[in-house]
Computed example of a mutant assay.
Amino acid sequence: MNGNIKKKEGFQGQKAIVIPKTVINNRCARNAVMGNMYITNIGYYPKAQYHYRERLHGADQHILIYCHEGSGSIQLDKTEHPLQAGDFFLIPGKTRHAYGADEHNPWTIYWVHFKGIAANEIIEMCKKNNRWKGFAGAGGKSLELFQEIYSQLERGYGTDTLLYANMCFWHFLGTVLFHEKATNPHDVSNKNAVDKAIDLFSSNIDKVLTLEEIAAAANLSPAHFSTIFKKKTGFSPIEYFNHLKIQKACQYLQFTNLLVKEIAQALGIQDQYYFSRLFTRVMGISPNDYREKRNQ
């Protein structure tokens, strides 16, 4: 920071909306839909030279800062985190922090303050995984959603407007936290070992794949791959593959006249009784009962 020049606000082209507390308390926090997560403040600071903010006791809300251009840094508790273009950072509520733009390459940031029961759970999830910082890419869908949210809130605080803006915020947050899911699904360069394995499952739904074959496609040992896959998805690789097979089986049962034995074979499962047991375990109902209920 250059000398004593520090600015909380006052950047050419800046935008900011602070939703009135009466609206927050009466329209958002008490609403059955919005009460889970809602925006309290939202804004945009372009080329924010000398931007600096320090909160010794933190903010009442959680804060998301997305660095679109330039660079800066965020200090959470006593740890310094540099931010470059494409990075995002989550600051938990009521946590001491400070942040500021780089002196020579000041950042352009989009920021949102938000609260709610689900918001707290999301912060806890990030805390558990030590995921305060991540890469959200060049913007794309995220920035489109941000602009949509902002333009709606500029129109006032009608119930429909607030509902729409805050429901869009869920999508916006998802595109930021799970950037790899929001990118082009055909862009191989963005895919990790888990995504590549899921692609392998989808293109081989009619086959039986062993764990060794799946891990080899990801260039990892079976044990290491299984650990990574389960941590990422919550399921073992084979269990996940079976879920996709049963998903396809449901479509066959609903949209075709194929016999259960024929469906099993189409999914690479030669034993129709094993297939029926697997289907029942996953769906909680037998294949024939599933077809009957869907056709009622």
Rank of each mutant, 00 (worst) to 15 (best):
L258D: 09
L209I: 06
E239V: 12
C250L: 03
A218R: 01
F225H: 07
E213Q: 15
L259G: 14
Y240T: 00
F255W: 06
F241E: 09
I228F: 02
K207R: 15
I214L: 02
T227Q: 13
I198G: 01
I205K: 01
L200S: 01
F201N: 00
L244Q: 14
I246Y: 08
Q254V: 04
A193H: 04
K191H: 09
T256A: 10
Y252S: 01
Q254I: 01
K245W: 06
F229A: 09
T256E: 08
I205P: 07
H224Y: 08
V260M: 00
N242C: 05
S221L: 08
S226K: 08
E212Q: 13
N190E: 12
V208A: 07
K191D: 04
N192V: 05
L220F: 10
H243S: 02
Q251S: 13
K245R: 14
T256P: 04
Q254W: 04
Q251D: 11
I238V: 12
E239L: 09
T210G: 15
K191A: 03
N257H: 03
F235W: 11
A216K: 14
T210D: 15
V208N: 09
F235S: 08
V208Y: 14
V208I: 14
V260Q: 02
L211H: 09
Y252P: 03
I198K: 14
